[in-house]
Design a protein around this nucleic acid. Sequence first.
DNA 1: TATGAATGAGTCTTCATTCAT
DNA 2: GATGAATGAAGACTCATTCAT
Lengths: 211, 211, 211, 211
Amino acid sequence: MDTRKKVGTNIKNKDLVNRKRKQIIDGAIKAFIAKGFHKSTVKDIANIAGLSMGTLYNYINTKEDILYLVYDYMTNILTEEMERAMSGIEDPKERLRAALKQNANTIYKYQDIVRLLYRESASHDRSTLHTVLSRETEYIELFECLLRNCIDAQHIDEDHLKLAADILAYMPVILPLRSWSLKRRFASMENAKDLFIEHLNKEIEFILKKI
Amino acid sequence: MDTRKKVGTNIKNKDLVNRKRKQIIDGAIKAFIAKGFHKSTVKDIANIAGLSMGTLYNYINTKEDILYLVYDYMTNILTEEMERAMSGIEDPKERLRAALKQNANTIYKYQDIVRLLYRESASHDRSTLHTVLSRETEYIELFECLLRNCIDAQHIDEDHLKLAADILAYMPVILPLRSWSLKRRFASMENAKDLFIEHLNKEIEFILKKI
Amino acid sequence: MDTRKKVGTNIKNKDLVNRKRKQIIDGAIKAFIAKGFHKSTVKDIANIAGLSMGTLYNYINTKEDILYLVYDYMTNILTEEMERAMSGIEDPKERLRAALKQNANTIYKYQDIVRLLYRESASHDRSTLHTVLSRETEYIELFECLLRNCIDAQHIDEDHLKLAADILAYMPVILPLRSWSLKRRFASMENAKDLFIEHLNKEIEFILKKI
Amino acid sequence: MDTRKKVGTNIKNKDLVNRKRKQIIDGAIKAFIAKGFHKSTVKDIANIAGLSMGTLYNYINTKEDILYLVYDYMTNILTEEMERAMSGIEDPKERLRAALKQNANTIYKYQDIVRLLYRESASHDRSTLHTVLSRETEYIELFECLLRNCIDAQHIDEDHLKLAADILAYMPVILPLRSWSLKRRFASMENAKDLFIEHLNKEIEFILKKI
DNA sequence: TATGAATGAGTCTTCATTCAT
DNA sequence: GATGAATGAAGACTCATTCAT
C-alpha cells in the first residue's frame, strides 16, 4: 500500500523546501479554516503565508497539493502524539487507554483542521484520495493492533475486533464534526470534550468485554 | 429557531414546483455523487435532471439552493422513516430501539447522499448553514427525548443524557464516512452495517445504564 | 421624412391596443424611472403594468418597442401642450413666448421622463433612432418657424435663425439633465425652474435682436 | 464632498497601472462609441485595448469601473484644458471668456466621448453616480467663481449668478447632444460650433449685464 | 530562487422571446 | 386574447497556473 505521496518541487535545497512548506501549511490552514478550500484562492494562501504566487508554486504543483500537505501534516501529528502518549507504557490495556485518550485530545486540540480535512476529503484528486484512504485504514489498524494485545488470542472474534477498532478511532471525530451543536448543548466545548473522554473510558471497558 | 428555509422560485403553480424540484433533486444527487458539488456545473445538473438551464433557474435562485434542496430532501426522509418505524410502538425502550435501528438503516440506505451532505456542509452559504445546523440539533434533541422517556426522571444526569443523544445520533454516520475502509475490512458493506447495528443494540443497553 | 414608426401587434381590436399600450407605457415609465431601461426586465414592466408576459408581447414585438412607445407618448404630449398653449394667440411674438414657456413647463413637469429619454436615446435600435432624430429635428423646425414669423423677412440671417431655434428648444432640457445640481444649488427645483423661465424670457428678446 | 473615486486593482506597480489604464480607456472609448456601453462586452473592450480579459480585470473590478475611468479621463481633460487656456490671463472678463471658449472647444473636440458620458450617466452604480454628480457641481462652481470676479460685489444677485453659471457650463453640451440635427441643419458641425461660440460670446455680455 | 503580471478557459446567472394550453 | 412556463444564448467575472524578468 502506498500510504505516502511525494509532492513535486523545483527546489533542490531540501531544508528550504521543508521550511517553506511549513509556512505554506500554516498559511493554508488559516485560509482554509476561514473560507474553506474552494473559496480560498491560491493567492489568498500565498498572501497569508507571506509568499508570492511564483514562490508558492516553486514548492507545489497544484492547489490540491496544498490540501495534501495539510492532510499529511495533521496525520503526522496524530500519529506522533499517540506514540508519544504510549511511550514507556507496557501494559496493553494502559497503552490502549493512553492511545485513545491522546487521540481524542489531539483531535480536540486541532478540531478546526480535522473538521476541515473531513469536509474537504472529496477535494483530493483521485490518486491522492487513494493515499488518504489507505492511510486512514492504516491508522485504524493501529487501534486494532492495540486492542488485539488486550485480548486472549483464543477468544478473539475478528469481526467484533475490527468493528471495535473502527468505532473507537472514529468516535472522537464527533468533536469537530458536531462542534456547533455541542457548543450549544453543553456548557462549553471543553466540557463536552471532557464528558466525551469520560464516556470513552467506560466504552473501552464495555467493548473489551464484548469482543 | 428557524429550521426551515424557503427556496425562491419564479413559478406560480405550487404543484409544478414540487414536481420539478423532485426532478432537480434526483438529478443533483446523481451529479453530486459522481463529481461532487463543486465539480458539477449547473449545466451538468440541468442535463441530468432533463431540464434546460433556464428552466432549472426558474425553480431555484442559486446553485447552493440545489444543495439545500438535497439536504432538505434527505432530512425529511430521515425524519419520516424514523417516525414510520416508531409508529404503533408504545414501550419507550422499544421506541428508542426502533428509532435508532431505522436511523442506521436509513443512513446506510442513503449512504451516498449522507456522505455527500457531510462533505459539502461547508458549501452552504452562511445563513443556510445556520438552518442546517439548527436542524441537526433539532434531530439530536429528538433522540434526547426518546432517551428521557426510558429513564426514571429522578435519576437523570442531564449532561450524560445529552451526550448519549449526541453519540447515538452520530454513530451511524460512520457507515457513509468510513465506507471505504469498512468495505475493505469487512466481507461487505452490508456485513459491516449488520455488525454495527448489533453493536448499537448493546450500546443502547450500556448507555441507558450509565445515564 | 418618416417621423413616425408603427409598432407591431397581433391584436385586431384597435381600441384594445390603445388601452393596453397606455397601460404598458405607464408601467414602463415607472420601471424605467426606478431602474433605467437596461436594468428593467420585461417581466418587471409587465408586472408593474399589471399584465402577463404573454399579454405584453401581444402588443409589442421587442423590448425596444416599449422605449419607443414611451418616447412617442412624451413627444406627443410636448407637441400637444405647445399647440394648446398657442391656440388663440395671434401675435407672432406672443405665440413664440407662449410656446417656449409651455415647452419649458412641460419639460419640467415630465422631467423624469425627459431625463430618461435623453439617457436612453442610445438604446433605440438603428431604424428607430432615425425616426427619433428626425422627429427631434421636426420639433426644432417648429421653433424656427415661430421665430421666422417674428422677424422682418428681409433681415433674416438664416444661420443665426437656425441656431437660435436649436438653442431655444434645447435650453429647457437643462432642467432634467442637471436637476441633481440644480436641486442642490437652488432653494428648490421649482425655484430653479422659475428663474430659468424668467431668464428664457429675456433671452428671447436678446436673441430676436441678434438674428 | 468626495469628488474622486479610487478604482481597485491587483497590480502593485503604480506606473504600470497608469499605463495600462490609459490603454483600457482608449480601447473602451472606441468600443463605447461604436456600440455603447451595454452592447460592448468586456471581451470587446479587452480586445480593442489589446489586452486579455484576465489582464483587463487586473486593473479594474467591474465593467462599470471602465466607464468611470473614461469619465475621469474626460473630466480631467476638461479641467486641464480650461486651466491651460486661462493661464497667464489676468483680466477677469478675459479669463471668463477664455474659459468658456475653451470649454466649448474641448467639448466639441471630444464630442463623441461627451455624448457617450451623458447617455451612459445612468449606468454608473449608485455610489459612483454620486461622485460623478458631485464633480459636475464642482465644475459648475468653477464658472460661478469666474463670473463672480467679473462683477461688482455689491451688485451681485446670487440666484442669477448661479443660474448663469449653470447655463454657461451647460450650453456647449448642445454640440454633442444635438449633433445629429446640427449636422443636418448647418453646413457642417464645425460651422455650427463656430456659430455657437460666436453666440456664446454675445451671451456672456448679455448675462453679465443681467446679473 | 523570487516575483508578480499575464492568461483564457470555465462558470454561474440573467432575461428577451416563444409557444403550448 | 390571456397566461406563464420553457428556452438557451450571451455575458460578467474568477482564478489556477505559467513565465519573463
